[in-house]
């Protein structure tokens, strides 16, 4: 085994939505450490705070108290634009609802994050093409999301997330909208990216089968971590 390097370190993290009477404590004090190259599944009942947690990890939202360190950087202290740069250079995101640009081809969707890196068109095209090949959609590059199946759309979304070669991929219920065999395709892809490229993956799911692909399962209940244990399958 290679030595372990800390990627994400979370201590006493809380998140409160609203104020006063309407205040809603979605996270009640989370402590967690995720190393590089790990494949973590986050499970738990609906409303237990999984998405809130992922949004904070992804730098899309900020915690109410506690600290989230990404490679030692305290993310909560970054400005909005600094967090945008963190997302741009280190984080990849895959959502349950795919979130692709509808009127734009698969290739252009994958290219999008590279535009914000200021890469020349030719380089963007090449990298986007390679990412599409990785997810097995090279021949679908000119199709718009509407012309693709759900599984294919999610694979485009994964290609978009990995095209920038991020340090970690966050996936919030990536197979939530897919049937069983499509889910399996996506999970095989994630396992491959994790295994072969050493991409850290943090994935929310409520499906035990899907969670079975991960090396470690963290269980959320009511804004707290109930259990955190290695899975049968070791990466």
């Amino acid at each position: 085994m290679t030595e372990k390097t800390v990627l994400i370190e979370i201590s006493r993290l809380t998140k409160v939505y609203g104020t006063g009477q309407a205040a809603m404590e979605a996270l009640k004090g989370i402590d967690l450490r995720i190393d590089e190259r790990e494949f973590v599944a986050v499970m738990g009942p609906s409303g237990s705070g999984k998405s809130t947690f992922m949004n904070i990890l992804g730098g899309l939202d900020t915690e109410t108290s506690g600290a989230y360190r990404f490679r030692g950087v305290v993310v909560g202290q970054l400005t909005r634009n600094q967090r945008a740069r963190l997302r741009r250079y280190y984080l990849g995101f895959v959502f349950q609802g795919f979130n692709l640009l509808n009127r734009t081809s698969a290739l252009e969707n994958v290219e999008l994050p590279l535009i914000y890196r200021g890469l020349p068109t030719r380089v963007r095209r090449e990298k986007a093409m390679r990412a599409l090949e990785t997810v097995g959609l090279a021949q679908w590059k000119s199709h718009t999301p509407g012309e693709l199946s759900g599984g294919q759309q999610q694979r485009v979304a994964i290609a978009r997330a990995i095209v920038t070669e991020p340090a970690v991929l966050f996936a919030d219920e990536p197979t939530g909208n897919l049937d069983r065999s499509r889910s399996r395709e996506i999970m095989d892809l994630l396992v491959e990216l994790n295994g072969r490229r050493g991409l850290t993956v943090v994935m929310v799911t409520h499906d035990p089968d899907t969670a079975g692909y991960a090396g470690r399962v963290v269980r959320f209940v009511d804004g707290l971590i109930e259990s955190d244990e290695p899975n049968g399958r070791v990466s």
């Binding site: 909005r80 740069r85 997302r87 984080l91 979130n99 640009l101 999008l112 914000y116």
Partner: peptide, 16 residues
């Protein structure tokens, strides 16, 4: 709005 959300999520700066 969703398109803007996507762009922001993948790292577009406010200014961009």
């Amino acid at each position: 709005t969703r398109e803007i959300g996507i762009r922001l999520a993948i790292g577009a700066l406010e200014g961009e």
